[in-house]
Amino acid sequence: MTKKKTGNTTNKEGKKTTQTRKKQSTTTRSRESQSRNTITSTQNKNTKSGNTQTRTAKRSSGRKKLKKKKGLHRKKTSLRTRRLIALVCTILILIVVGFIGKKTVSFVSSIWPNIESVKNSLTGGKIDKTNVDTSDQYDINDEKQPTLEAKHNIFIDVGCGGNETGYVTKDNVKEKDLDLEIAKLVAKQLSKYDDVNVILSRQEDVYMSADERKSLAENQNAELFVSIHMAGENTGKADGVETIYYKGSQNGSYDFASLMQTSIMAFIKAENRGTSAYEMSVLKDNSMPSIYIQCGFLSNSAEKKKLTDKEYQQELAKGIAQGILSYIDAKK
């Protein structure tokens, strides 16, 4: 009886021991599984964090590369822009320099003969017979000689002369030659009247100073002083006729200038520039009414063509002569 109980007890204890071992092994396994899961999850986390770090590193390196690329692009763009600006500036400078150079050459070439004329006028006295037809231009046989019947002495001052050529055109038309041609035509018109005596300041191509011209007029007891000239300027656009009197004169010059301008414009078709007052040396301190007629602009090609035309010259001379006669009649 006792033995049986012991056996059963042993068996029970064995069973308990077995069950205990099973539980322990199960617990151990579960712990191992948990530890494995923990390790795996840790590894996964580490892997994920590693991947994240790797991605972050890749992104940062990619950004750096992009920044580097953007920086190079900006440098290239900036360099191209500078080159383009430099090229445009160079072209503009060349255009401006070329334009100024062309204008300068044109300006100098147009005024050089007149600068030379002013320089020569300071020396004066020399005779320049180039481009002058003495057989025709200086023929004054038709001019009436002074007689006892003459009552009115009219002094016609021929502008320029000698080295003082006045304005010179590109085709070598000289003011001094046209001044003499017009003055001689005026003298011929006036010589038709018995009561008029005409005195020319010069009848050949010689230089005369302003003082010499005025002294000659005073010595000849001139009643009127009429100086004949052409004009010129640099644009080539100015044109027309203008009559000038001395600024502030009290000898009747203003009235004479107004009447002369009206008379000339009645005979020719030209721009009416009216009358003007200037302090011109050839008009200064004259005792008689004195005027300075600018018959037209040689610098204007259209007007130069008219001024060198014989018929136009005749009409211009008639207008000047009529202005003189009208003033004489008005003073009677």
Score class of each variant (00 low, 15 high):
242 E>Q: 08
262 T>N: 14
256 F>G: 00
147 T>I: 11
277 A>V: 03
210 A>I: 10
189 Q>I: 07
200 L>W: 13
211 D>N: 06
164 E>G: 13
257 A>G: 02
234 N>Q: 13
197 N>L: 07
242 E>F: 00
243 T>H: 03
216 L>H: 10
282 V>S: 01
139 D>S: 13
225 F>D: 01
192 K>T: 12
217 A>F: 05
248 G>L: 06
282 V>E: 01
147 T>R: 05
238 A>M: 10
176 K>D: 11
160 C>H: 15
143 E>C: 11
276 S>G: 09
145 Q>N: 13
199 I>A: 05
198 V>G: 02
191 S>Y: 14
283 L>I: 07
198 V>W: 03
211 D>A: 07
266 A>L: 11
227 S>F: 00
148 L>C: 11
141 N>H: 15
237 K>S: 10
195 D>P: 03
250 Q>V: 14
258 S>H: 11
258 S>K: 15
280 M>C: 05
163 N>F: 02
238 A>V: 13
172 N>Q: 10
275 T>S: 08
202 R>Q: 09
176 K>M: 12
236 G>P: 04
187 A>N: 03
171 D>P: 10
191 S>M: 08
263 S>Y: 08
156 I>V: 04
224 L>N: 04
149 E>T: 14
144 K>W: 00
146 P>V: 13
245 Y>C: 09
181 E>P: 13
267 F>A: 12
236 G>I: 13
232 G>F: 12
182 I>R: 14
189 Q>K: 14
245 Y>M: 04
212 E>F: 12
165 T>V: 10
232 G>W: 13
263 S>W: 06
276 S>W: 11
203 Q>C: 14
152 H>L: 03
197 N>Y: 09
193 Y>N: 08
253 S>W: 07
199 I>R: 09
257 A>T: 01
164 E>T: 10
223 E>R: 00
276 S>C: 07
144 K>Y: 02
201 S>W: 08
181 E>Y: 15
244 I>C: 04
